[in-house]
Simulated scan of single mutants.
Amino acid sequence: MARRLSYSARYEHPTEKVYSALSSREFWDDQMVEFRKLTPQSDVDKFVVDENGVDIVLVQTLPKSDLPAIASAVIKKDMIITRKEFLGPYNPEKTEGTYSAGIPAGPGNVSGVQELFPTETGCTLRRTTEVKVYVPFVNGKLEQLILVNLVDLFRGEAEFTADWIAKNS
């Protein structure tokens, strides 16, 4: 059974500033610099901004030695994560998109929807995630571990985004 989680990053910035950051190559390159402090191989593999929106692919490699014991029992070598982010064309009322993450020959998947919308104090980027692991007996534990780590990731990315906008506006 898949597990779900919804996470909302709240910004004091208007939607157009957050969307502008998320559609900036410099933003993603700077974020990869930060990721490299934890994961030495973190790169933007694809970056397209056009009339359809923002389409990004990130590739990160986590060394097997850095994986939690339960994950390293399932993943037999370094874990290569391919993350896809998509946001549709900017809409001041609500910009919708999707995201996913996968591991080649991995035991499950992460996918979700995201929406950027205005609030009284700025805006919110809400991500609703579904995690599914196909390993009997440990699937629930792995799904929960992934969700906990996603909350930490989303929180860190929200802080980075807010700081980046403040420095680059």
Rank of each mutant, 00 (worst) to 15 (best):
M1W: 06
M1G: 15
R4N: 15
L5C: 09
S6I: 07
Y7K: 04
S8M: 12
A9P: 00
Y11I: 08
Y11R: 03
E12I: 12
E12T: 14
H13F: 13
E16F: 10
E16N: 14
E16G: 03
E16A: 00
E16C: 07
V18T: 07
S20K: 14
S20F: 07
S20M: 12
S20I: 05
S20W: 06
S23L: 08
S23F: 04
S23Q: 03
S24V: 01
S24T: 08
S24P: 04
F27L: 06
F27G: 01
D29C: 01
D30K: 02
D30G: 04
M32Q: 09
M32G: 03
V33E: 13
V33G: 07
V33W: 08
E34L: 12
F35R: 11
F35K: 01
F35P: 00
L38C: 12
T39S: 11
T39M: 13
T39Y: 14
P40D: 03
Q41H: 14
S42T: 06
S42C: 09
D43Y: 08
V44Q: 05
V44P: 00
D45W: 05
K46C: 11
V48E: 13
V49S: 03
E51L: 05
E51F: 05
N52H: 12
N52M: 07
G53T: 01
V54D: 00
V54S: 03
D55E: 09
V57A: 08
L58F: 11
V59A: 03
Q60R: 12
S65T: 15
D66F: 07
D66V: 08
P68G: 05
I70D: 12
A71K: 06
A73Q: 11
V74I: 13
V74T: 04
I75C: 00
K76T: 12
K76A: 13
K76Y: 02
K77Q: 14
D78S: 09
M79F: 04
M79H: 04
I80D: 01
R83V: 04
R83N: 11
K84W: 03
E85F: 14
Y90I: 01
N91V: 08
P92G: 08
E96K: 11
Y99A: 05
Y99R: 07
S100T: 09
G102F: 03
G102R: 10
G102P: 07
I103E: 02
P104V: 04
P107V: 11
P107M: 13
G108R: 06
V113N: 11
E115N: 14
E115A: 15
E115D: 13
E115Y: 12
F117V: 08
F117R: 10
F117L: 12
P118N: 08
T119S: 11
E120G: 14
G122L: 08
C123Q: 01
C123V: 05
C123G: 04
T124R: 10
L125F: 05
R126F: 01
R126Y: 05
E130P: 00
E130C: 08
V131Y: 03
K132P: 07
K132M: 12
V133Y: 00
Y134T: 15
Y134C: 10
P136H: 12
V138R: 06
N139P: 00
N139D: 15
K141S: 09
K141L: 10
L142I: 14
L142H: 07
E143S: 09
L145N: 10
L147P: 00
L147M: 05
V148S: 15
N149F: 03
N149M: 10
F154M: 13
R155H: 15
R155Q: 13
E157W: 07
E159P: 00
I165A: 06
I165S: 05
